[in-house]
Design a protein around this nucleic acid. Sequence first.
DNA 1: GGCATAACTTGACATTATCTAGTTTTCGCA
DNA 2: TGCGAAAACTAGATAATGTCAAGTTATGCC
Lengths: 192, 192
Amino acid sequence: MPLAKPDPLQRVIVDAALEIASGVGPDAISMRELARQANVSHQAPYHHFGDRAGIFAAICEEGFAILGNEMQGNRNLGAEALCESYVRFALNHRGHLRVMFRTDLCDMASYPDAAIQADRAFGILYDEVVAMVGLDADELAVQTQTAYMWSVAHGLSTLLIDGPLLNKIGSVQDMDQLIKNIARMASSSIGV
Amino acid sequence: MPLAKPDPLQRVIVDAALEIASGVGPDAISMRELARQANVSHQAPYHHFGDRAGIFAAICEEGFAILGNEMQGNRNLGAEALCESYVRFALNHRGHLRVMFRTDLCDMASYPDAAIQADRAFGILYDEVVAMVGLDADELAVQTQTAYMWSVAHGLSTLLIDGPLLNKIGSVQDMDQLIKNIARMASSSIGV
DNA sequence: GGCATAACTTGACATTATCTAGTTTTCGCA
DNA sequence: TGCGAAAACTAGATAATGTCAAGTTATGCC
C-alpha cells in the first residue's frame, strides 16, 4: 500500500493561514509563522506565493470560488436561499470571508484569477435578481435590488462574524432562525 | 493675541492614524509612523495610548460616538433616515468605520468607554425599531428587525467602502440615489 | 522653592517582510 | 541509466516594527 501523498506545501500553508485568520484574524498571519507550522524554512512560502499578499490572493480566489459554488447550488431556490447560503458560507468559512473583502490585504485588481471568481459569485446573485424582477426591468432597478440583497447578506455575515450581533443573540437556535427570517425579509422586498 | 494652543498630542496622533486608516487601511498604522508624523519620539504615543490597541480603542470610541450623534439627530425622521445616516457616516468617516468592527484590532470588551458608545448607537437603532413595530411586539420580532436594519446599513456601508460595489456603479449621483433607494427598501420592510 | 506627577526621550530586544544568493530535489529525456 | 534544467527549497542579511526598561524634562500645585 503506497504511502499517502503528503499535502502539497501550498495547501498546508493556506490551511495554516486560514486557521489563523478564522481565529485571531488575518493580520496575525505571518510568513514565518506559516513556514514554522509547515516545518519548512522561512523562505519556502515565498516560493509559492511571491509575497504576503499572494497568500491572501489565494485565499480570496478559493473563498469566492466556494461561495460561487454554494450559491450556484442554491440558484433555483430563490433569492431567499441565495441570501441564506451567503451567510452560511460566511459562518462556515470565516477565515475566508475575513480576507475576501479586505482590499488592503490583497488588491484583487492585481490577481485576475481571484477577480474572476469574485465576478462569478456576483454574477450569480445578479442573475437571480434579474430572474425575479423580470427581464424587462430597467438596469438601475436591477442594480439597486442586487446591491440590496448583497448588502443584507454581507452585512448580516460580517455582523455575525465580527460584530456585536452575536452578543445580543441568545442561542445558536436563535441565530439559525434569525438568518432564515432576515433572508425571507430581504427576498420579499425584491421584485415588487 | 495669545498663540493658538497646539493640538494636544493625542489628537494629532489619532488624526494621523485616521488618515492612514482611511487611505491604505488600519493595518498600515504603525506606532513609529504616528510618532514620526507628530514629530515626537517613537515612544511618546505609548504614554497616551498604552499600546497599539489603545489607539484603535480611541478610534472606536470616537467613531461610535459620532455615529450615535448622527443617528440621534435623525432619530425623528424614521428608519429610512437612520439607515441613510449610518451609510453617510461610513462614507464620511471611513477610517473610523474600518476600525470599529475589527475585533482583532481592538477587543471592545477591554475598553468599556468604547463599548458604551457602541451600545448607545445600537440602542438608538433598537428604539427606533421598537417605535415602528409597536411596543406590544414580542422581543424576537424586534431583535430580528433591528438586526435586519443594521445588516442593510452595515452591509451597504462596507461594500461601498471596501467592496467591489463602487466599481459596479457609475457616478456619485448614482451612489446617492442608490443609498436612498436601499434605505427606503429597508425601512419599508419594517413593522409589517 | 520644592516636589510629585505627567509627558516625554533613549536604548535595547525579539520579531517581522523581504532581498539576494546559494543548495538540493525532481523529472523529462537521451 | 544518467544528465541537465527547472522547481522547490535553505541560509544569511537588512530595514522596519511593537514593546520593555530606564532615564530625563516639563507642569502644576502647596
